[in-house]
Design a protein around this nucleic acid. Structure first.
Length: 572
RNA sequence: GGUCCUGUGGUGCAGUUUGGAGUGCACGCCGGCCUGUCAAGCCGGAGGUCGCGGGUUCAAAUCCCGUCAGGACCGCCA
């Protein structure tokens, strides 16, 4: 149908007769007998010269035949890859007419996202999305190659799986053959990949679709893609190496530059310094320990297990109303309050200054390296709360745009095995119940401080986004049973929930470890996008709807009947 | 479950604080002119449920209440 793609034509093609197909990008008429038509396909745009263009409107689909010629002197367009040539058209066929698009296809304006999604097929024509989907394909391809180079084989796992009560809310699919029973769509292939290890596949990977019925965000969709991997006879160190290699390959495929070694930080240090288990290390404003400074304070608000602060350089000009707003935010996040202090030449300008001793003022200034013009923000509470609040406050005040400052990968290691206790007093697994405790801390399982047990679990962070996580798994049945017992899961319950995994472990289980990271998130950052919807061809809105297809939709009664389902009346 | 922001011709905005005729800007669309443009240019024209409902008022895009949609975030996401 065509001989060339629009964007490929160069000065070396002059003299050739070519046939091109594409969309009318723009048209410039100069009277009855001269018009320029920019023809666009995925490869780019080329200028057609036609004798009158009244019937060639925006977004018409054309097939045009003509001769490539050099543009006349001084009319080349340097901004265009094809700008040195133009096509003198001999014949044009309109393959398809088009109504004016519902929004402009140029990149100069931000269009309402619902409108873009409703007409996604038009939106996809824009260079931005064409580029993003190309980046996505490059990332997929590079990651596949990287994993295969390291001896991993691709294995597909089912989409209709058994629901498990742990973790995120499942999407469920009613069973027709067994009315009243349901499949779940996989939150991840976690169990299956471990079974692959028992199955002797040695090194498994998959770019897997995962589904979680939880509230959506700019970095979260109901369905998302993960590079999912698992390997036998490997240590945590090996896994970090595999994954570092894969994400570096992806980055290199997109940027042309291979990132250097990825830094590491322990979970404990991340929480202490950044108040987050996914620290954005692209900027300072670290959390500073002040508990000792106020150890003997008379100021009641600081008579807490922990006091920490952040220093906002030059922040003393932040208005009182903004400070009130920040205080309100901190309270909404769970703080009792926020103490602010403006650093002036000879004093601390603060509502609480009168409660502090000279020693405390001096100690504070020293600890925080306070300089005139700074703003100091302090929170006092339980250590866990202080870290959390200041971590959020730090991002609120200092976080650069997601894609600023290059790629800052970071490994967070030595996660705790448990994070807090549930209502009944049982520990809650921080990662999942198959995570191997840190060797040095295993003794604490029996009668130690269980919340102090570290695990062999690790996260990969990029510019403050959690890219993914993994762990060394428990491969010994007795250790697994011990963990279940600590978690308060009885053997019957464990058998009911994970029996098939425990059964499998009876038949010869290799030590194994794995990881999974979000392809959408990695792609977004590599494409320079703040929002993963921009790198997904057909994403959903924050409320989980698809303006293009109107999903989710109701289904008819016969369909429900067949599945053995009846709807409850709507609640008011 | 919660907090905050947004909603005005096809598109992007201004107008809302301080109520006074659907007022304005840019793009697009339709028609005309135009033989070297490339965000072409010039002239003319069409196009409106100010998201929706209610209230206050002589009068509401503007103030109040409710509601819908979208977005950002907190919770949630083993």
């Amino acid at each position: 149908m065509r001989t060339d793609r629009c964007g490929d034509l160069r000065i070396t093609d002059v003299g050739r007769t070519v046939t091109l197909c594409g969309w009318v990008d723009r048209r410039r008429e100069h009277g009855e007998h001269l018009a320029f038509v920019d023809l666009r396909d995925r490869s780019g745009v080329v200028q057609l010269v036609v004798d009158g263009a009244h019937d060639l409107r925006s977004e018409f689909v054309l097939r045009a035949t003509g001769t490539v010629r050099e543009r006349p002197a001084d009319t080349a367009n340097e901004a265009l890859a094809t700008g040195e040539v133009e096509i003198e058209i001999e014949a044009v066929e309109v393959l398809s007419v088009a109504e004016p698009p519902p929004f402009p296809l140029d990149e100069r304006t931000d269009i309402d996202e619902v409108l873009r999604l409703r007409h996604r097929y038009v939106d996809l024509r824009r260079p931005r999305l064409q580029h993003n989907l190309e980046v996505r394909a490059q990332v997929n391809s590079a990651v596949r190659r990287a994993m295969e180079e390291q001896g991993f084989i691709e294995v597909e796992t089912p989409m209709l799986v058994a629901s498990t009560p742990e973790g995120a809310r499942d999407f469920v699919v009613p069973s027709r053959k067994e009315p009243g029973s349901f499949y779940a769509l996989p939150q991840s292939p976690q169990i299956f990949k471990q079974l692959c290890m028992v199955g002797g596949l040695d090194r498994y990977y998959q770019i897997a679709r995962c589904l979680r019925d939880e509230d959506l965000r700019s970095d979260r969709q109901f369905e998302f893609m993960q590079l999912d991997a698992e390997a036998s006879f490997v240590s945590q160190e090996d896994v970090l190496g595999f994954i570092s290699f894969a994400v570096s390959a992806a980055a290199e495929a997109v940027t042309g530059e291979r990132p250097g070694d990825i830094d590491r930080i322990s979970w404990e240090e991340a929480m202490e310094r950044y108040g987050s288990d996914k620290p954005d290390v692209r900027f300072g404003m670290e959390l500073i320990e002040l508990t000792e400074v106020f150890a003997n304070t008379e100021f009641r608000a600081f008579q807490t297990p922990c006091v920490k602060g952040i220093r906002v350089p030059g922040g003393s000009d932040i208005s009182r109303s903004r400070l009130d707003d920040l205080t309100d935010r901190c309270k909404a996040w769970g703080a009792k309050g926020l103490v602010w202090m403006r650093v002036t030449p000879d004093e601390l300008d603060s509502p609480v200054d009168k409660f502090l001793t000279d020693d405390e003022r001096a100690g504070l200034r020293t600890a925080m390296n306070a300089e005139v013009g700074d703003l100091l923000l302090l929170v006092a509470d339980e250590r866990r709360t202080v870290r959390h609040i200041l971590g959020l406050l730090r991002l609120e005040l200092g976080r650069p745009p997601l894609t600023a400052g290059g790629l800052n990968f970071l490994w967070v290691v030595d996660f705790p095995l448990f994070e807090g206790l549930d209502d009944v007093g049982n520990p809650i697994p921080a990662h999942h119940p198959f995570t191997m405790p840190h060797e040095d801390d295993i003794v604490l399982l029996d009668d130690g401080d269980r919340l102090a047990i570290r695990s062999q679990a690790y996260d990969l962070v990029l510019n403050g986004w959690e890219l993914g996580s993994g762990s060394v798994r428990i491969h010994e049945r007795d250790v697994q049973e011990k963990i279940f017992s600590v978690l308060g899961i009885g053997s019957e319950e464990a058998q009911a929930k994970f029996g098939f995994l425990l059964d499998a472990f009876r038949y010869g289980t290799p030590p194994h470890a794995g990881f999974a990271f979000g392809m959408d998130r990695l792609t977004a950052i590599l494409a320079g996008e703040e929002n993963i919807r921009e790198v997904i061809a057909y994403p959903k809105t924050q409320s989980g709807t698809d303006p293009l297809t109107s999903a989710p939709t109701s289904i008819d009664d016969r369909h429900l009947e067949e599945l053995g389902l009846r709807l409850l009346p709507p609640t008011d």
